[in-house]
């Protein structure tokens, strides 16, 4: 299943779509070609940006916020990007399995030591500071990391409440 994220700083999806005027400046400003523009004919979303973390995750360079003219994407710091969150499945992780000392997710995390820490200097652990950029999900050789978008996370919280 392909999952789509909104650019960092987009916040609530409905508010974001109200403010986006489809100018594409965020996609042009993206240094990692992570931001794509919706192609279809749906008048509500055509031309609005999204990130497909399976193809190219967001590296939290935070260039898209300042490029956005309407404030649909707010100019924020990395820690406030709030795109979603990631979960590590320890049963699948090389390090936890004892197979090999892999720290790919830790090395590649744009917020390493904050969003991903190494417990006892060895075991990767995703903290509550994770903003869901999707880089660890993209690089994990074992596909042990699940990514959940902000929207899915909120739906889950609502259904549990």
């Amino acid at each position: 299943m392909s999952m789509k994220l909104l650019p960092p700083g987009a916040g609530d999806r409905e508010r974001f779509l109200q403010n986006c005027i489809h100018c594409g400046k965020c996609a042009e400003s993206c240094r990692f070609d992570a931001i794509k523009l919706t192609k279809g004919l749906d008048p509500l979303t055509a031309g609005t940006p999204y990130i497909d973390p399976k193809k190219a995750p967001c590296f939290l360079c935070m260039h898209c916020g300042p490029a956005c003219p309407t404030g649909a994407i707010s100019a924020l710091e990395q820690k406030d990007a709030d795109m979603g969150t990631a979960f590590l499945n320890k049963d699948q992780c090389f390090t936890y399995m004892g197979a090999v000392l892999c720290r790919t997710c830790f090395e590649k995390c744009p917020m390493r030591n904050t969003a991903i820490v190494l417990k006892n200097g060895t075991y990767p652990e995703i903290t509550d500071d994770c903003v869901g950029c999707g880089v660890c999900h993209y690089v994990c050789p074992q596909h042990a990391i699940t990514l959940i978008s902000r929207e899915q996370l909120q739906a889950k919280v609502r259904s549990e409440a």
Binding site: A27, E28, D33, K36, L37, K39, A46
Partner: peptide
């Protein structure tokens, strides 16, 4: 924009 960025023509 979309042609240069991704080489696709949007439906619009």
């Amino acid at each position: 924009q979309m042609l240069w960025l991704y080489g696709v023509i949007p439906a619009g």
